[in-house]
Design a protein around this nucleic acid. Sequence first.
RNA 1: GCGCCCGUAGCUCAGCUGGAUAGAGCAUCUGACUACGGAUCAGAAGGUCGGGAGUUCGAAUCUCUCCGGGCGCGCCA
Length: 535
Amino acid sequence: MDIREHLRSGLSAALAQVGVDSHDLEIALERPANRDHGDWSSNVALVTAKSAGTNPRALGQQLVDLLAADPPPHVTAVELAGPGFVNFRLADTWLHDVLTDVLEQGEADYARHNLGAGARLNVEFVSANPNKPLHAGHGRGACYGDSIARLRERCGYQVTRENYINDRGVQMARYGESLAARKRGEEPPEDGYQGDYLIDWAAEMPDDADPLDWGRERALASHRATLAQLNVHHDVWFSERSMVDSGAIDETLSDLRERDAVFDHDGAVWLRTTALGDDKDRVLVKGDGDLTYLTPDIAYHRDKFSRSDRLFNVWGADHHGYVARMKAAMQLLGHDPGELEIAITQMVDFTRSGEEVKMSGRSGDFIALDDIIAEVGPDAARFTYLIQSVDSRQTFDLDVVAEQGMDNPVFYVQYAHARICSIVSRAADAGFRPAPLAETKIELLVHPRELEILRSLQELPDVVRLACLDNGPHRVAAWAREQAAALHGFYHECYVVGDGVSTEVTQARLALVAASQVGLRVALDLLGVSAPESM
RNA sequence: GCGCCCGUAGCUCAGCUGGAUAGAGCAUCUGACUACGGAUCAGAAGGUCGGGAGUUCGAAUCUCUCCGGGCGCGCCA
C-alpha cells in the first residue's frame, strides 16, 4: 500500500477534527528536496488556512498536535515547518514495504496503471514517404512514438501502432519516373529524386517490374528493416491509395457534405475550419478536380476513428501548422477534438567532433537512419533519442553517443542491470538461492545506500504515470539513470556476498537487487532498450 | 505580421498542473579496490533560471511584455 494513503487519511481525520472539510480536496504530499524537512511533507495547512479563517502556521500546529497524538503507520515524528508545512518523519519500515510491493508485483505489474481503462488507442508514427530510406531525423519520431505506445500499454490502453503510407499523388509518380530513369542508366528528371540510393534500388529491380509498385515495396522494406533494428514494429501499415479503391475518400467527402461542413467557391470545395479555430478555410478539392493532400488525410483519420476510441499522432515540427485544421476536420465529422492528440517532435541536429553534420532534403543529401544505428548501436540510438524532451530541439553528438563509456548514460544503466545479474550469479556460486520474501529479513536493510534504492523504486509508479499523462518518456530515462546510480553506489559500499556479510544480510540484499532489477527492466522496456545480462 | 517550440552551471539537458537552500551528466580539480565486473564510486568547484512587470504566504514553474533562436503560416505534399 502506498504510504501516502496512510498519511492522507491521517491528515484528513485531523482536518475534520479542527472543522475543515477536506472531502473535495486532493491532499498534496511530496518528498521534500531537503532531507531535513522529513520524509514526506504536506502543504494542506497553507492551502486551507484562508478558507478556515485562520493562518497557516496556527492550523498547521493543530494538525501536527493531532497527528503526533495518533500517528499514521511508520510515522515517528510530525513537525511544523516554514510557512506552515506539516512534515512527517518515517521509520525505515515504510521503505521495506516498497520492497515488498516491488517483488510481489514484479516486472509485470509494478508501476502499472489503468489510466486508459481499456480504451483502444491508435498511435500513428513515422509515416514517411515510401520513396526513400528513413533519415536520421525520422529516428526521433520512431523511438518516441513507440515509447508512447509502450507507456500507454502499461497504463491500461489497448494500443495499435500504425504507419501511414503516402503512396498516392504526384510525388509517387515522380519517384516511379526517377527509378525507371535510373534503371535505364539515365539521370532522374529534374523534379525527380536524385539520391544515390535510387541507383542501388534500380539495380535490384527486375526488368518487368512496375517502377512505382516495385519501388513502393522496396522503400517499405527498407523502412521496415530500419525500424526493426530500433525495436519498432507497427501493427498496421495503412495505404493511402487503398482509400481510393475502397471509396473511403469519396465517402468522407459526402459525409462532410451532409454535415454541411464544406462549401463550393471559385470552383473548389472548401472545408469550414475557421469556425473551429483554424486561420482560414481549407481546400479539399482543387479547381482542377484533384484532391489536396488534406483530403486523404482526413479520410484516414476518419477511418482510424472508426476502429479506435482515441488517436495519437506523432508529427515533426514542420507539421505543427496542420494541427488546428486536422482537429477542426475531426470536429466537423462529429468527433471530440480532445480525442485526437498530436505530439510535435522538434528537430534533431547531428554533430561529429563538434562539427555540424549537414542534412538537406534536396538532392537526397541526408544521413540515413541506418547509418546512425550502425555507428552508435540500436540501444544507444534509442536511449539518446528518448532521454530528452521532444519539445526541445536536440543535438545528437555521434561521437559521444558511439562511445561506450561514461559519457553515455545508456551503458551506465545497462551496466547496472548486468551488474545485478553478475551479483546474483556470484551469489549462486556461493550457494545462495533466492529465498521466499516471507523468510527474508528485509528489516536488515538500513544502510543509506540500501534505502536510496528503495526511495527511487518508490517513485517509479509516479514517474510512469506522469510520463504517460504528459507524453514524456524522457522522464523514464531520467529515472533509469537515477536507479542505476543508486545501484552502483550501493554496490561499492554494501557487499552482497562476502566474508563479513551474514547469511541474513546476503539474503536481504539479494532481495534488494532483485527489486532494483525489476525497476530497471520496467524502465528499459518502456524505452525499448535491451536489459543485457552481461556486457 | 500571426501561430507553435525553446532560452536554466563552461557544454548537453532535467525540473514547468506554484513549495522550503534550483538538479544531473560531461568537462575541470582532488581522492577510492589484496572480497560481488573500475564501463564503477566519493569529494570540490561551477547559477542575475534571457530582461522587466504582475498574481500570492511562496514563482525556474502561472499571466503580460520585450529580447534572442528554431519551425511553420499554399487550390505544394
